[in-house]
Design a protein around this nucleic acid. Structure first.
Length: 481
RNA sequence: GCCCCGUUAGUGUAGCGGUUAUCAUACAGGAUUGUCAUUCCUGUGACACGGAUUCAAAUUCCGUACGGGGCGCCA
């Protein structure tokens, strides 16, 4: 497998847009070597993981990999000391090596008649070689092995799993998605904030919190930046976003839930639900457009791997905007029409979403949920009623297929209505003073949303489990590594 | 939390009452090699744990542990 990518840098951007200064251990990275036409004849020092070592005699080939790419190193008796040659030949896979040598054009491989000659490739002819750190054998999982590996085995040995090229590519994509998302929001006047993760009480109703001890006071891990980004708006910050962790003590066990996850949140003053849905679809459109323009090389290892597993390649189709709006009313009618068992007032399950996705493949909004199904802080407009006459809310979801990506809405900005909403839900407003107090001194109408980063990446990378694109996932039964 | 299912070398698999427990890859040793998933030879290595049934259990049953899939809830 590795061979297929031997001459390709893992990250396009690393070579062209990034300034690489030499470090204490290397003068060049392997991405530079693999694009090394202008380095031929130059002496370089490179470092990397030994992906494959071939040859125990007078010559030896090493496929070396670092974070930027791969390159072959050629070692020949006489070019370097016998001790050095022997130490490399005795090294195990994934040991880290440091090689000094001259960049040269590789001798072209023998190709069968009719096969095209591969493009020129470059290698380092070693004049000196060191093992920096040996890898114990056997490896708990083979980085280049083509055998299937259980997700659990992979996560138990994530530090090795991450070395696999398609896994590595997914995390590079994640970094780009966040970068392009940030740059988009900043271009629309948003500023980045960080809200506290240690809180005294629930900032949003519903889920269970992880309790913790804060000196002598009981406290909790934050399950959402909801309240704090609203308080930022009340504080006059106008447009804010946050990328940060949220913690939920729910005993769920699915491909799309974790107990710690990264939420991409925005909050926007003087705006309603439609306004922030617009921000969201423009942001996703921008991210997809940038990815498809600049990062498609990252899908090569991903699709190469998928093909080895008999899976369809993933394609990046820039979703056109606006995304379809399927109101709650329309969704219920559509599900019923397609034979789904659902009544007005029921939650829309993943199976129901499959039915909607038949009609609306890709991203679609589900706006205007019943007020009684939404939390007390969601705004409603009197007179906006559903087909059964019940009050509708300005809350919405964004789905992709069967999966919910985002939940958001216009928030209620009037403290009297907040208190009334709580009383309507048979809750005591006094218990929510920590929330409502911030609203007592003038509040802009505002709206926002929270997007599950891993769920969005799942769509982009074609992953079937959020754990695949979370570095060290935390679920009900996993707190290590 | 509910309903199904699974656990065999480092990794991933075959076997489904009697096998010397299959194969790939990895690992160790050797030969070969400017190789291209190098090739070839030799070797090492496994039935999750506890109990039951049986002449005989990796294989059937019960329990435990761990894991997987689906659902609910959510992002």
């Amino acid at each position: 497998m590795g061979e297929l990518f031997l001459n390709r840098p893992l990250a396009h951007q690393t070579m062209s847009d990034v300034t690489w200064h030499p470090t204490a251990y290397r003068t060049h990275n392997l991405g530079q070597i693999s694009e090394g036409a202008d380095l031929v004849g130059k002496e370089v020092t490179v470092c990397g993981f030994a992906e494959a070592l071939r040859g125990k005699g007078k010559i030896c080939f090493v496929d070396l990999r670092d974070g930027t790419g791969r390159a072959q190193v050629f070692l020949k008796q006489g070019n370097l000391s016998d001790e050095e040659l022997e130490s490399i030949q005795n090294a195990s896979r994934e040991s880290t090596l440091q090689i000094t040598g001259v960049v040269a054009l590789k001798r072209p491989p023998k190709v069968a008649d009719g096969e095209p000659t591969p493009p020129p490739a470059y290698e380092v002819v070693a004049s000196s070689a060191q093992v920096l750190a040996g890898a114990q054998t056997p490896l708990p999982l083979g980085v280049t092995d083509t055998v299937h590996i259980d997700l659990n085995t992979r996560l138990n040995n994530r530090y090795l799993d991450l070395r696999r090229s398609h896994v590595n590519a997914m995390f590079q994509l994640r970094s780009r998605v966040l970068q392009y998302g940030r740059e988009f929001l900043i271009s629309e006047g948003f500023g980045e904030i960080n809200s506290p993760k240690i809180i005294a009480a629930a900032a949003e109703g519903g889920t269970n919190l992880f309790p913790m001890q804060y000196f002598d006071t009981p406290a909790y891990l934050s399950q959402s930046p909801q309240l704090y980004k609203q308080l930022s708006i009340l504080g006059g910050l106008d447009r804010v976003f946050e990328v940060g962790p949220a913690f939920r003590a729910e005993e769920h066990d699915t491909y799309r839930h974790l107990n710690e996850f990264i939420s991409f949140d925005i909050e926007m003053a003087w705006a309603d639900d439609e306004d922030v849905m617009g921000v969201l679809e423009r942001m996703i459109n921008h991210v997809w457009a940038k990815i498809s323009k600049q990062e498609m090389h990252l899908f090569e290892p991903i699709n190469e791997f998928r093909s080895s597993q008999g899976k369809e390649p993933v394609e990046v189709v820039i979703p056109s905007i606006p995304f379809p709006r399927v109101s709650y009313d329309d969704a219920i009618a559509l599900i019923q029409k397609k034979g789904g068992d659902i009544n007005w007032g029921d939650d829309i399950s993943a199976a129901h979403c499959d039915l909607i996705a038949d009609e609306y493949p890709g991203f679609y909004f589900l706006p205007r949920w019943p007020m009684e199904m939404k939390p007390f802080y969601i705004h409603h407009v009197k007179g906006e009623n559903g087909t059964t006459g019940e009050q509708l809310s300005r809350g919405f979801d964004l789905n992709y297929g069967r999966d919910e990506m985002t939940s958001g809405g216009q928030r209620e900005h009037r403290w009297e209505i907040l208190e009334q909403n709580l009383r309507d839900m048979e809750l005591d407003p006094a218990d929510f003073d920590f929330y409502i107090d911030g609203f007592r001194y003038g509040a802009p109408p505002h709206a926002g949303w929270g997007l599950g980063v891993a769920r969005l990446l799942m769509v982009l990378c074609g992953a079937s489990n959020v754990r695949e694109i979370v570095l060290f996932p935390r679920d009900r039964s996993r707190v290590t590594p």
